[in-house]
Design a protein around this nucleic acid. Structure first.
Lengths: 203, 203
DNA sequence: TAGCGCCCGTGACAGTTGTCATGAGCAGAT
DNA sequence: ATCTGCTCATGACAACTGTCACGGGCGCTA
């Protein structure tokens, strides 16, 4: 059995190095690269050719799921494991579409990490069963692309005016789209709709 | 030099064990207890009498800052270090009021962790200089206690009605309080006020 | 005791937001 | 060729939200 070469992508330096410390205890795993930004994943992969890339989702530059998609396109042999704080079904769905082999949350016990790395290296898929069930139960987004855009632009208590400017639409149109979003999410106002859609991974 | 006994409180199991792995490389530091909930900090301290308690803020049961306050009251000799994702000035202020000796963010390099633990054990205080400056620049909260309550109850796009029920006030009064909050934060609506106050640690 | 600030409430008003009807242009499917 | 659904827009209306003025009660301080 040869050692598994691992790329570690996680923006918080202390956590990244702590995870590296954790993996250093495994004889068959070697961390060959560490990056703190999503847009550094590709170049680091080119340089170090890892067997498995371990990606956080929340990262500056490019989020982990986007990085996963690009990585999978350019290096289909590199297995990808998403390691995230939030087990949102929407994340899982996007991850699956991005060619990811493993999806684990940071709540899991530590030994799950090395176990997952070994499993995906062997060609298996590793997904938290509860999460998978939740993702299936939720179904796919009922929002049209434009509704999604508008709803995504309305975080943080923005005004209709501000949203309209951000999306280059008239205020009336924005109101209409938001009204549709509110209806489809079952919310009572746009802030709640925004939160619900976010949770379900519809954004 | 005797070894430093450390208690580790962090809700995400994988991160917690990774941090323990990181600290295991330090010869003079020993992790004598690990907990995943804020309300387990006290009992674990009673059982293992650590020199330093390393607390995350976001934890179920009781948040790290509340745990810090209680810990400081009951075990004044145990030094406390807050380790958090978010370097919000408001957190820092609350931490200082809770008798904390050190405050570091997870963005810091990994060696900062052990260094901080040693420094606080030696009686020093360790605070990120940038954060300290930001906290001082922001000043203290201009919100009255009741305004704070109302604003805190209005997260996630709640209706005025829902807030009023949650805080046992008439809707008119809620509107008045929120209006005051909006004025004091310089926001344009309650959602933005909520976000701003949250960021500044006024909640 | 008078003044001050916080608490809680009401009522009136203007501005913003959510709903609905309507219509035109444009794609893809039958 | 027609139907359907998405996009974008306008206008009207109702509901909700934010602002303001006002009043009474409470506790603290000068």
């Amino acid at each position: 059995m040869t050692t598994i070469r691992v790329l570690l992508a996680e923006d918080q330096a202390m956590i990244r190095e702590a995870l590296a410390a954790l993996l250093s205890f495994e004889d068959d795993i070697e961390v060959v690269a560490q990056v703190g930004r999503g847009d550094e994943v590709i170049t680091a992969t080119n340089a170090s050719s890892p067997d498995v890339a371990l990606l956080d989702i929340e990262m500056p530059g490019m989020d982990g799921l986007a990085a996963a998609a690009e990585l999978h396109a350019k290096h289909p042999d590199t297995k990808i494991v998403i390691l995230t704080t939030f087990g949102r079904p929407g994340y899982l769905r996007r991850a699956m579409e991005s060619g990811v082999s493993g999806f684990i949350v940071k709540d899991s016990p530590a030994d799950k990490l090395a176990a997952t790395i070994r499993q995906v290296r062997d060609g298996q898929r590793v997904i938290d069963p509860d999460l998978a069930a939740a993702a299936l139960a939720e179904g796919t987004s009922p929002l049209t692309p434009r509704e999604r855009d508008v709803l995504a632009a309305c975080t943080d208590g923005k005004t209709i005016q501000q949203i309209a400017q951000a999306v280059y639409l008239s205020e009336g149109t924005v109101r209409n789209y938001l009204s549709a979003c509110i209806g489809k999410t079952g919310a009572r106002n746009r802030a709640e709709a925004c939160r619900i859609a976010e949770e379900r991974g519809w954004l």
